[in-house]
Design a protein around this nucleic acid. Structure first.
Length: 290
DNA sequence: ATCCAGGCGTTTA
DNA sequence: TAAACGCATGGA
């Protein structure tokens, strides 16, 4: 990865120096780690990032240069860098990981995926909803939750108005139990409501542990003490919400890989401190193969 | 119609 | 400790 440069052009923030193998928006937004980025035009994604409605796009210039453009305010661009973790060089990282045959193929196929540093609370709720659920319905449910309880986020660009909803804070969901249970979330509504109450009434402080010094295993135990969070959901929250790259969610796809490819359980520790990244490549690759 | 989805909690042996 | 079982909902 080259050094990246940032500039402000026509009100957009431009990121140069990356390649599509450093950051591929299509792969990153569609590999199952996030559910609210919507493709509104051919290569334009709309989402809410740190409560700001954000458009982001990538394109290849005539000279072959690959650029990312975002409406995110230039002065706050550190947020974008953090969200995509752009200072982390995946190529250098992957050189240090000993990859077996399947993992190697998965990495090649998934080049361009980046693990996003997502909002912790949104990640917790999203992956509680994800259990025993389909990807499309997860996205619908998260969107519905935002549209029902969140406040508006708007953007005006080139005389066009864009509108979406911020993901609601616990306090906003807390206000209306009836409405929450009326969103078609099934048995997950109760898990969410219990957690919302515990947080608002200060019996649970997991949101204050975003930058905790605790080990991943210790955080895992704390997460799993929440009703509705088991090992798989916990590891997704650790990976996508707490930026713990050693977390390795074992879902149905990984189990399928264990059964059909390896014929044994995968031991995440063979992939080192960034096993979670390898997990994401494997997940994405196995879905493609099936 | 029956089955199943980025699992989990509870019960049973 | 592990295996079996029920679970809300909606799409195929």
């Amino acid at each position: 990865m080259n050094s990246i440069t940032l500039s402000n052009e026509n009100g957009l923030t431009i990121i140069r120096g990356l390649t599509k193998e450093d950051l591929d928006l299509d792969k990153t937004f569609n590999c199952g780690q996030c559910f609210r980025w919507q493709q509104i035009e051919k290569s334009i994604y709309q989402g809410v990032l740190n409560d700001k409605l954000t458009l982001i796009t990538s394109s290849v210039l005539e000279n072959g240069e690959y650029i990312i453009a975002t409406t995110y305010p230039y002065n706050d661009l550190q947020d974008i860098i953090d969200y995509f973790n752009l200072r982390l060089d995946y190529d250098e990282l992957l050189k240090l990981i000993k990859l077996d045959d399947f993992a190697y193929k998965a990495v090649q196929y998934g080049k361009g995926i980046r693990i996003l540093h997502q909002d912790l609370w949104e990640t917790i709720i999203t992956f509680i909803i994800s259990q025993r659920n389909r990807v499309e319905r997860i996205a619908n449910s998260v969107e519905l939750l935002a549209n029902t309880f969140g406040s508006k986020a708007t953007l005006e660009l080139n005389n066009k108005k864009y509108e979406s909803y911020k993901f609601p804070r616990p306090e906003e969901v807390y206000k209306d139990k009836e409405k929450l249970f009326d969103l078609g979330l099934g048995y997950r509504a109760e898990y969410i409501y219990n957690l919302v109450c515990d947080i608002v009434e200060k019996r649970n402080n997991i949101l204050e542990r975003k930058t905790s010094k605790l080990s991943t295993a210790e955080l895992d135990m704390i997460l799993q003490s929440v009703k509705g969070i088991g090992p798989k959901v916990s590891n997704c929250i650790l990976l996508f919400g707490y930026n713990r790259y050693d977390a390795f969610p074992k879902d149905t796809w990984i189990k399928k890989i264990e059964d059909t490819i390896y014929g044994r359980d995968i031991n995440p520790s063979v992939y080192g401190n960034y096993a979670g990244l390898i997990q994401q490549y494997m997940f994405y690759y196995m879905k493609y193969l099936s």
